[in-house]
């Protein structure tokens, strides 16, 4: 689905921000992009989206070279949720906002189809449709932006820090929706995220970046257990993984636990076996 071959990128007049990035992401994967601020994560997702064109190497999405694909063609394939929803929203009602993205991708003539899809999404997300997006809360604006991003059913969904600044409920709501999309429609998801708990809960694979380089690429669970790697990328694993790791010596097998309840169950079992 997404293939990066030795991709490098330098902003005009600057040194390389991203170098020698190579990875392959299959259709339907849920990948987290990890790394400290300035590691080049946003640059990397913009490269996937084709918003930036590689200055070295090649990036292909769905078999199309991003450097040679037209904006409209690419927008049909790839949805991009920006860190700041306010840059995306430009219509006066939520309904118009969702329709705006659809019109840009499907064309103005598809009025009937656009109306149907808009109605459907309004219902799913529980919007009336006549709300003014700019008077909504930050979390709701993020939801509006997400809704209009995924409206044209992109095969790839790129999320740049989708949960930053959201409260717990808003965050869960958005993430659950994305998970459903990933599981039922097979949408490929690439997500930049600083919240390791969310990464553990939702993503299956992680790419770790530091200083513009790809440090590691593997299943989230394995990445989180690799202490030296996390150290190098200035990341802290989720508490549950830390606790499980500590307990691992005494209760072998417990370090597989991903949730608190499974950790308790696992350690209780081991304790029972020993007694």
């Amino acid at each position: 689905m997404i293939t990066a071959e030795h991709v490098g990128y330098a902003y005009r007049g600057n040194v390389r921000t991203v170098s020698d990035l190579s990875f392959h992401i299959e259709k339907g994967e849920f990948v987290a992009l990890l790394g400290e601020n300035g590691a080049g994560k946003t640059t990397a997702v913009k490269l996937i989206a084709g918003l930036l064109r590689p200055t070295e190497g090649r990036m292909t999405v769905n078999g199309l070279d991003t450097a040679k694909t037209r904006v409209s063609e690419r927008a049909k394939q790839v949805g991009f949720l920006f860190q700041n929803p306010d840059r995306q929203i430009c219509e006066n009602t939520v309904r118009d906002e969702i329709a705006f993205g659809l019109r840009a991708v499907w064309g103005k003539k598809e009025t009937e189809r656009i109306r149907e899809r808009t109605d459907e999404l309004l219902e799913v997300f529980g919007f009336r449709g006549d709300e003014d997006p700019f008077s909504l809360s930050r979390g709701q604006r993020q939801q509006v932006a997400l809704t209009s991003t995924l409206a044209p059913r992109p095969a790839v969904l790129l999320l740049d820090e989708p949960t930053t600044g959201l409260d717990y409920r808003e965050c869960t709501r958005i993430m659950e929706f994305i998970r459903r999309l990933n599981e039922t429609e097979g949408t490929t998801v690439v997500m930049v995220c600083h919240d390791m708990e969310i990464v553990l809960d939702y993503a299956r694979r992680a790419l770790v970046m530091a200083g513009g380089h790809l440090l590691d690429d593997g299943p989230v669970k394995e990445i989180f257990r690799d202490a030296p790697l996390l150290e190098k990328a200035s990341l802290l694993p989720p508490q549950i993984v830390q606790i499980a790791g500590r307990l691992g010596g005494e209760f072998a097998g417990a370090d597989d636990a991903q949730t608190l309840s499974s950790l308790i169950a696992e350690t209780a079992k081991k304790k029972g076996e020993r007694a």
Binding site: V71, A75, F80, Q88, F100, G101, A104, T149
Partner: peptide
């Protein structure tokens, strides 16, 4: 950039 991502040419 955000609008380009949405398919505005």
């Amino acid at each position: 950039e955000a609008q380009t991502a949405r398919g505005v040419e």
